Amino acid sequence: MTFMKKLSSVLIISTAMFGLSACSDKEPESTGEKVDKMVEKAGDKVGVMKEEASNALEAAGEKVGEMKEAAGEKLGEMKESAGDKLGAMKESAADKLGEFKDTAGDKLSDMKTDAGNAIEDACEKAKASAGAKDKDC
């Protein structure tokens, strides 16, 4: 039961008991004493209920704190993991770019050599067809 339901039940029972006690044939002083005892017991029960509610709220607050801390730790781990992955991607891209640069440089060098050889071959053919004695270019 919630706190308000319990409190309502205690108050209704106390009122009913007070009404029944007031109508009894016993002496007024003993009826008053009984009512006082019932009110005291009801107050004690309300105090206990209040303390239990306070303890429950405190426990809930601690649980929320633990959940918040765990979420913060998980977020930190995710951030670190993402940073590691980005670093690995950057390194991989740099490696690929280096490989591409080396491959492109090798191909360009081969093209220069081929072009030089083609020019030399063309020069030698031109000298040969012109009847030149020195056929080296």
Results as ranks from 00 to 15, higher is better:
A56D: 02
A56S: 03
L57G: 01
L57T: 00
E58V: 01
A59K: 14
A60R: 01
G61W: 09
G61T: 01
G61K: 12
G61H: 03
E62Y: 14
E62A: 08
K63Q: 00
K63W: 02
V64G: 02
V64E: 00
V64S: 01
V64A: 03
E66F: 15
E66N: 03
E66Y: 05
E66G: 02
M67N: 00
M67L: 04
M67T: 00
K68H: 00
K68Y: 06
E69P: 05
A70S: 01
A71I: 08
E73C: 05
E73S: 04
E73G: 01
E73R: 12
E73K: 11
E73Y: 11
K74D: 02
K74S: 04
L75Q: 07
G76E: 03
G76H: 01
G76C: 07
E77V: 06
E77H: 04
E77L: 13
M78N: 11
M78R: 12
K79F: 12
E80S: 05
E80I: 07
S81N: 08
S81I: 05
G83I: 13
G83Y: 03
D84N: 11
L86Y: 06
A88R: 08
M89E: 10
K90M: 05
K90H: 03
K90P: 02
E91S: 14
E91V: 14
S92V: 11
S92I: 10
S92C: 10
A93W: 11
A93C: 14
D95F: 10
K96P: 09
K96F: 03
L97H: 11
L97I: 10
L97G: 07
G98Y: 07
G98W: 06
G98S: 06
E99K: 09
F100S: 02
F100K: 01
F100Y: 09
F100M: 00
K101M: 04
D102F: 08
D102P: 06
T103C: 03
A104F: 13
A104E: 05
A104H: 06
A104P: 08
G105C: 15
D106W: 10
K107L: 03
K107D: 02
K107I: 08
L108K: 13
S109V: 07
S109F: 04
S109D: 09
D110T: 09
D110R: 13
K112Y: 13
